[in-house]
């Protein structure tokens, strides 16, 4: 089928999805032991979107992410070790411990970056697309945003300009059914948020967000279009957030039957089933075990890395001479 991932790409997506899941589970376990700092927003159950949507991008393509960006970081090619080190505030973190888990960036990979002001990633990615157009580069930019972010005013402003100027950008709406705790029907009068794309004259597609191949195909088609200069597109990937809003979520609003139903369609299982006929279950289990080991090693290493030393940031000083 057109725009399908190659088997190698599919294997890499499968591997990265396991890296992300293992990262999330380790963070959950360490949080329970009181060993994490600040809220952490896990994306268990949403790995297929972040990983598959970014799989066809180059390092020169930009991705703007959210407060729930672990799958986007790994998808865009960051190693798990500097990500873990960043989450634990170490000098070896992607941002030397200055950013934390919500704001990770690696400019050399085009990940710029996590953004914890809900909605802010939408104009952010649009601005990078504008820069690509002004300079005549053929790079695209991708905005990954949530169903909560889709309700912001700035979303409208940015999408209108993106479509008006045919900017090279793809909007990937990660519809995980919740804002912070509110269900989608407490935030919006419509179920399928991507019908709004029509209001901007922008094509859109709805996909099963737990199916990495479906995500790859839909997003890949929009990326191609954007790269050809035909303007932006939107993909709405339906999924479900299996864990709480963050590690500080006290729960009580997610229904057991919903969680069970979505767990039965866990994206890791979907990805496994899609590949088993091609490469065999044993091979997949080995890849899985390697991913787990990689994450374990990243945690071991990061947790024994040093903390940064504090230094004032003189570049933002109020006086033009050092006082």
């Amino acid at each position: 089928m057109k725009n399908s991932p190659s088997i190698d790409e599919q294997i890499e997506i499968f591997r990265k999805m396991h890296v992300v899941r293992q990262l999330e589970e380790k963070l959950g376990a360490l949080h329970k032991e009181g060993k994490t700092r600040g809220p952490i927003h896990r994306c268990d159950g949403q790995e297929a979107i972040g990983v598959a949507a970014t799989a066809m991008l180059d390092d020169t393509d930009y991705v703007m992410s959210t407060h729930r960006g672990h799958a986007h970081y790994i998808g865009k090619g960051l190693d798990v070790y500097p990500v873990v080190a960043e989450i634990f505030g170490r000098t070896t973190g992607s941002c030397a411990g200055r950013a934390g888990h919500m704001l990770v960036a690696d400019a050399s990979k085009g990940m710029i970056g996590g953004n914890a002001i809900v909605g802010a990633s939408i104009p952010a990615a649009t601005g990078a697309a504008l820069s690509n157009q002004v300079l005549g580069r053929d790079a695209v930019s991708m905005c990954i945003f949530g169903d909560g972010a889709a309700q912001t005013g700035i979303c409208h402003e940015a999408m209108n300009m993106a479509a008006l100027w045919k900017l090279p950008i793809v909007f990937v709406l990660e519809h995980n059914q919740f804002g912070l705790t509110v269900d989608t029907d407490m935030q919006s009068p419509i179920d399928d948020l991507s019908i709004r794309a029509a209001g901007y004259g922008m094509p859109s597609e709805i996909v099963d967000g737990n199916d990495p191949v479906a995500v790859y195909r839909a997003v890949g088609a929009m990326v191609e279009r954007a790269r050809r200069g035909e303007g932006p597109g939107m993909v709405e990937a339906k999924t479900y957030r299996l864990e709480g809003f963050s590690t500080s979520d006290m729960g009580g609003y997610q229904k057991d039957e919903d969680i069970a139903a979505w767990k039965a369609r866990d994206p890791l299982k979907v990805a496994f089933d899609q590949l088993k006929a091609e490469i065999g279950e044993d091979k997949l289990k080995t890849i899985e075990a390697e991913a787990v080991a990689e994450v374990e090693a990243a945690f071991d290493k990061a947790l024994s890395d040093p903390f940064p030393e504090f230094e004032l940031f003189n570049a933002s000083a109020a006086y033009s001479e050092v006082v």
Binding site: I122, G127, L135, M161
Partner: peptide
């Protein structure tokens, strides 16, 4: 669209 324009200036600036 002042809000988005300013946010776009920020990322346009950091991308060249």
């Amino acid at each position: 669209s002042e809000q988005a324009m300013t946010a776009m200036a920020v990322t346009a600036a950091m991308t060249g």
